[in-house]
Design a protein around this nucleic acid. Structure first.
Lengths: 341, 341
DNA sequence: CTGAAAGCGCTAACAC
DNA sequence: GTGTTAGCGCTTTCAG
């Protein structure tokens, strides 16, 4: 038989013929214990290879020092960057990060949130799934006073902290950029219109058209799930219009890439004949040929901010709910820069 | 004052005037409880909004139903894909995934492992940091009989489960491919030689040269950290050699991209004058121009396999340690395909 | 400055 | 089929 069991504070108390409470206090640097005994206890703890059992202490303290993060897809650059940012500040603050992905499925998201709740996360950071959904599972958290931070894809009617980028402004500026480059029939591959960020992007686009007195043609907007397949499909369809567009404002970089490849393979010249712009600044958008004009969403910083906000809330430092709107940045690249400015 | 406390099994026991153990058993579908009472209890639990406290049950059961995963960098496509695969099977098996990144730093890796241990993860999946390190922290886990699975970057001297791809074979085949395309002075941007996967890649390269009776020129191998900056630097240096190479086998896709961009900007023709190949099949390698020949490392599958193995071990189903070597796949693209076959 | 005792919420051996 | 009891390992009042 292996002596498998970990030493506990009782074991070390027994060796020193003192009480477990003294050991507990010493290990937690309670000033009521003399420095001498504190040192003695710590030395022995080290020697015995003692490791505090956080399950026990968390149970007792009714907190887990754990925060959850749920994203649609872990291996999407934007989301993995956010996770990376969350991990960065969580680790420094002594929090553990548990992670899960909804795969953009409503049902899975609900299960995840319930499971994280059962596991007593101290707070949750989430970007909601694309699939339309009630938000009862999230309202439950609010009701139980578990801090909740939305990022990127938020639920407007839930009052809590939110970190978003200025989608409207991003869309406005990138559309304005296309107009400045002389494009006039600008199509928009819009994302699902149950998500506010995609609504905002569409509205920014419309606003730019309006401001420049370009009449808006509804047939130039297609709302899709923004996968590369649907992107290609949409571009094909738009190109078959009696009056095809001369530029494409794509809801993300993935569909911008689809558009670029499709048009390039058709022998179209980019940016001379067709302008293409995306959204998010995925790593590939910089290195493809032609490189793709896009809007930067600073994932790592979003993750850091979200974690800071959440931990502040958990530790009850923060006051009222805030919505942080991070400024975006337009990066002009080859795919739309036909005036070379 | 808010009635903040969650209902417990005692609360629901009190309402029904039964004992807590009966409630516990009913909720866990213990067959010793009559179906009638089971249903009654479950109905009330639902009504009261009862959620089991897994901290308590885990403490009692001396297990956490949690597995840890530590990677060098979360927002690298390969690693986030692995994480995604781990999450996929863990969630289905009712396990929670906690995540952390070492940022390739030895010290941080040690801290992470200790912290995960303190949090009583049931098992750990890890790809070790680039920075050279003792592996005492990992040996500790083995000593405590906490299941451990290595993937990609392993510690050879620790006996445990390992999932790797066949780096040697991948390097051999991709080098052979360059030779088949008529390249003869093939340089190699090697990774840090304290990691077995990079050693294997170098050896596969050497073996291919040898088999084709190409004399090996040590000045054509540079060992770097495989960042894009160091990649550019290395290519520059190699091009300044009295006899520069005519092809580059880069240790990863990032450096292959650096090489490609550097040579392209110098007006060199790829693949006509210079062949370039990478390793890992990062998403960008397919879409850049010219697209980059590379070796597929199936991240998602690696993650799934790692989690299956780990969970099997946790549940004591598995027998002896195994090392799974996943086959790699060569994808020939434009950057090396000058004979168009 | 230290100890005794109770309890966080759940489970399981043992009794009936 | 159900209840009693003890305890997982830690923290914290209350006493001294």
């Amino acid at each position: 038989m292996i002596k498998n069991s970990e030493p506990t504070i009782h074991d070390i108390a027994r060796v020193l013929s003192i009480s477990a409470s003294t050991v507990s206090r010493a290990l937690n640097d309670n000033s009521r214990i003399s420095l001498k005994t504190r040192d003695k206890i710590k030395a022995l703890a080290l020697e015995m290879g003692y490791r505090p059992n956080s399950l026990a202490s968390n149970l007792r303290n009714k907190k887990s020092k754990t925060i959850g993060i749920v994203v649609p897809l872990i291996n999407r650059y934007f989301f993995s960057s956010v996770i990376s940012g969350v991990e960065d500040v969580a680790f420094k603050s002594g929090f553990t990060v548990v992670i899960s992905q909804s795969s953009d499925l409503a049902q899975k998201e609900i299960e995840i949130v319930h499971s994280m709740f059962a596991n007593r996360v101290d707070g949750l950071i989430i970007s909601i799934a694309m699939e339309p959904n009630t938000s009862d599972h999230l309202k439950l958290l609010r009701k139980k006073h578990i801090p909740l931070v939305f990022f990127d894809r938020v639920v407007p009617e839930i009052e809590t902290d939110k970190i978003v980028v200025d989608d409207f402004d991003g869309a406005f500026r990138i559309t304005q950029h296309l107009i400045d480059q002389g494009y006039r029939r600008i199509a928009h591959l819009a994302g699902p219109q149950n998500l506010t960020s995609y609504i905002d992007r569409k509205n920014g686009y419309l606003e730019a058209l309006k401001k420049n007195e370009i009449t808006f043609d509804p047939s130039l907007i297609v709302s899709i799930r923004l996968t590369s397949e649907e992107g290609t499909q949409a571009v094909k369809q738009l190109m078959n219009l009696p009056q095809p567009p001369d530029a494409f404002f794509c809801g993300n970089d993935t569909t911008a890439l689809s558009a670029m490849i499709y048009l390039r393979d058709q022998g179209r010249r980019i940016p001379e004949d067709f302008g293409i712009v995306g959204f998010s600044n995925e790593p590939f958008s910089k290195v493809v040929t032609p490189s793709i004009t896009t809007i930067v969403q600073p994932g790592f910083e979003i993750g850091q901010k979200a974690a800071e906000l959440l931990i502040g809330r958990i530790e009850e430092r923060e006051q009222s709910f805030k919505t942080i709107i991070l400024p975006i940045e337009l990066i002009v690249r080859e795919s739309s820069n036909r005036r070379k400015n």
